[in-house]
Amino acid sequence: MLLDRKPRRSWGATLTVLALGIIVALPMVSQVWAHKVNVFAWVEGDTVFVEGYFPGGKKSQDSLVEVFNPAGTKLLEGRTNEKGEFSFKIPERTDLKIVLTASMGHKNDFIVPARDFVEVGSSPSSPPQSFAVSAKDSSAHPTDLSQLEGMIDRALDRKLAPVIKLIRDTRKEGPTITEIVGGIGYIFGLFGLVMYLKSRNKKRRQESGDRSLEG
């Protein structure tokens, strides 16, 4: 009885420590920071803005940003400032792959699809066909149209800014409690399975041992 009690108490202590550890760790979840760099890019006018950050919002400062076209040619490169931001004029009206390399082996990429800036970019040089025709009919100046488009773009950028910010903030969130508790569950399940398999081997070995003794 006495022999039985001691190990049970110490296992209890170990489990208490684990439980305490999880309780301490859980409140930190809302402000969790992880070990992964994120990239987010959006278009305003003819400029692409890139932001690099670690989950939880820490900025990825002085990180290398490279921009590639779909053919894999590097179009330009630069480094993020102290806010983790970098911006550049649209170099080519194709899908742009933005690769951010932070120190210590962290790297991630983000693709800005061509449709994000095709209309913005084409408006000053060549207005869409239908507009040009109607412009001729109504004898309005094309410059007015492009001015109008510019105004609409600016207004849209302004209106969309909070939405873009919301998206950026949402992407900064770290792992959720579901993922953390789920992970712990996987670990226990996995090692439970290992125990089960090992116990079957053990039993089989014992059985074969018994049989050889009988025989």
Partner: peptide, 26 residues
């Protein structure tokens, strides 16, 4: 094995505790 499982869990969870000192996410 149970001991390995407990410490694996600790290792898994502890990576979420960031040390807020220094230039990068550690």
């Amino acid at each position: 094995i149970p001991q390995v499982a407990v410490l694996t869990s600790a290792f898994f969870v502890v990576s979420l505790i960031r040390v807020p000192v220094g230039p990068s996410a550690v």
